[in-house]
Design a protein around this nucleic acid. Structure first.
Lengths: 225, 225
DNA sequence: GCGTAATTTTGTGTATGCATTAATAAACGC
DNA sequence: GCGTTTATTAATGCATACACAAAATTACGC
């Protein structure tokens, strides 16, 4: 399951986690620049581990290091989301297909099922944040079941980029009722060992999600930028 | 085209290039360990830029940094290649599909066509190295034409991993004659604006490549490990 | 001899200092 | 005043120093 959590708890690692959190929370605004020294001060460590963290986050596409200008928190455009969703669509669909090929039992799929139930509950309770969290869990678990560690890594990376865009559009999006139908159908197809169906449904699911999100981002852009 | 080549020529960047080269050439053998200090000495610089380079290469999956054990050059297993090819298959197929959707002209596809011709020529001349290089160019160009920068990045990353496996199996693999038929068919489908065909053919192409390579790797493993 | 504790060695993670050079401000000619 | 050149400032990239902890080695008890 969690195969690689042996890296102690270096400052560099803490810097990665904290910077990510600061980016997701908006404390480091999209498009803003920050000197290495400033970040080091804010995190209470020297430039070295901050630099290493920034290097990693740069490779993940969350920020960009520009000599003398500081690290720039990358903004997320509708075009970016189109790219990201295209990747997610392909790789998650494959994961669903592969998961369905493996003859998994209800027990294996327990976490997936739990995520679906959580989403249902969150919708009933009108708790969009909880819904988003459960939705993330569903997708992460689906990819895990696909059994390809590289897909898991890439999807996690792309999901991070999506998460930022979603955070700002969460309350603008329609309540995702239809969405959970898809989730249940994917679940059923995997349990039934039907790869083609699992793939097809998840694919359409992601396609729609992409269109909804990019649509909203484009509207927002017209108003705010 | 080359959108981001403004990074000067830092030592860190040189370290990335040189380490990559050393890994591909086998100068740093798969599975071997190397202390940061050793690498720094060999590259004629201090540990700092070497460390930054290693961090990047770690995120690319070429090596692993283990506290006190040194930098381990990751070996490539058949299972790894199966994962990598699955990713390549999905993303390159999408790139082919997207390329076909864009209504590209013969001129736009010139580089792709050139790569195909080069492969043909290399096969006639029995120059497997040249063929491999041209094949790489074909795939890189195809992905470029797909117009998704993230796919380009991921494919480049995965291709690096494949390149290492290919280097050791190049002369074991059958001469790829059928392969170029696929390439030409993909080319034709893109030019004709037929996304579905472009996708389907490229998909099968990659699937076969995967089976050939993993098959050989498994055989090798039986003998050498 | 052999298992265990003490000691030394060694590599990493981090802090720090500094040279380089880009960016900015100041000085200057016109 | 304004464009150009020079001086100043400041941020990075890198080298270096060092503390800490893991590993290896030795010393020791039995």
């Amino acid at each position: 399951m969690n195969e690689a959590r042996r890296k102690p708890i270096s400052n560099a690692h803490r810097a990665v986690l904290q910077l990510r959190e600061m980016i997701f929370s908006g404390e480091l605004a999209a498009g803003s620049d920050h000197l290495e020294t400033e970040l080091a001060d804010r995190l209470g460590m020297s430039r070295t581990p901050v630099r290493e963290a920034a290097l990693l986050l740069e490779s993940q596409g969350l920020l960009e290091m520009r000599p003398r200008k500081g690290v720039r928190i990358l903004p997320v455009s509708a075009e970016d989301m189109r790219e990201v969703y295209d990747v997610l669509t392909e790789l998650e669909s494959l994961a669903a297909e592969r998961a369905a090929e493996r003859g998994l039992t209800e027990q294996d799929l327990a976490a997936l099922h739990a995520a679906i139930d959580d989403m249902e509950r969150a919708i009933s309770a009108d708790d969009l944040e909880a819904w988003a969290a459960a939705d993330d869990r569903f997708h992460a678990e689906l990819v895990r079941l696909g059994g390809n560690s590289r897909i898991r890594m890439i999807v996690a990376m792309m999901s991070d980029q999506v998460r930022r865009a979603k955070a700002s559009t969460l309350f603008l999006r329609p309540v995702p009722v239809k969405s959970n139908e898809d989730h249940r159908a994917v679940y059923a197809a995997i349990l039934a060992g039907d790869p083609a169906t699992a793939r097809r449904i998840h694919r359409n699911h992601r396609r729609q999600a992409r269109d909804v999100l990019t649509g909203i981002l484009e509207q927002m852009r017209l108003r705010t930028l």
